[in-house]
């Protein structure tokens, strides 16, 4: 293991292993960064964009997904700067329209003072965070489910459809990962 390096997060020096992401480093130092598509056992994905943080270097400033950016010595990270909060609120405004019933999303929206959304409310059961798909691939190596379709047509589906009967009935491990709370209940309904 490489030697620890020091970066600053919100003005405080934080010690981290260079193999850690900025998100991990922040969380181990007790700094909260919201995420939906992150999971400690899965590779960084960068889909939900909630974990955006600001990196400053002199006059330069850049927003990056902290779940995929690795800690470097001397990095100046801001997790609650105006630029970060503005982007985070805009992302939460979308999420609030997509799934107003999700407790997790309501909680995050509340924490970040997002109370209303201007987006069209369209019923969605999935934020396409990909946790279930990636778990099935990276941890279980079974690839029963995958993404199908592109853009707004994107969806999670069994590929091919009969994979459900073959493998999923005895697994269901991905269900507990769903950040929306909808996937498990859907499954429950399907089982009845």
């Amino acid at each position: 293991m490489a030697d620890n390096i020091t970066l600053t997060i919100d003005g405080h020096p934080v010690s981290a292993d260079p193999s850690q992401t900025v998100l991990d480093a922040a969380r181990s130092a007790g700094v909260a960064i919201p995420t939906l598509c992150h999971h400690k056992d899965l590779l960084p994905y960068g889909g939900c964009r909630l974990c955006l943080v600001e990196l400053r270097q002199g006059k330069r400033s850049q927003l990056v997904a902290s779940c995929g950016y690795y800690a470097k010595a001397g990095l100046e990270v801001h997790t609650r700067s105006p630029r970060v909060l503005r982007a985070r609120k805009l992302v939460l405004e979308v999420l609030l329209a997509l799934m107003p019933y999700s407790e997790e999303i309501r909680r995050l929206a509340h924490e970040n003072e997002v109370t209303e959304t201007r987006y069209q409310r369209t019923m969605h059961y999935c934020v396409l965070c990909g946790l279930c798909v990636r778990y099935c691939d990276e941890v279980k190596h079974t690839n029963c489910i995958g993404f199908v379709g592109r853009g707004v047509e994107r969806n999670v589906a069994w590929v091919p459809p009969d994979r459900y009967d073959q493998t999923c009935r005895t697994c269901f491990e991905c269900m507990s990962l769903c950040p929306t709370g909808v996937f498990p209940s859907n499954f429950g309904l399907a089982e009845v």
């Binding site: 889909g47 964009r49 992302v91 069209q120 396409l128 990909g130 379709g149 707004v152 047509e153």
Partner: peptide, 21 residues
């Protein structure tokens, strides 16, 4: 761009969809 967005990240997928609307 709405047709061509891959849909992986939320801002692009949902932001462009709303812009078109």
């Amino acid at each position: 761009l709405k047709e061509e967005s891959c849909g992986k990240c939320l801002p692009c997928r949902e932001g462009i969809r709303e812009m078109v609307t």
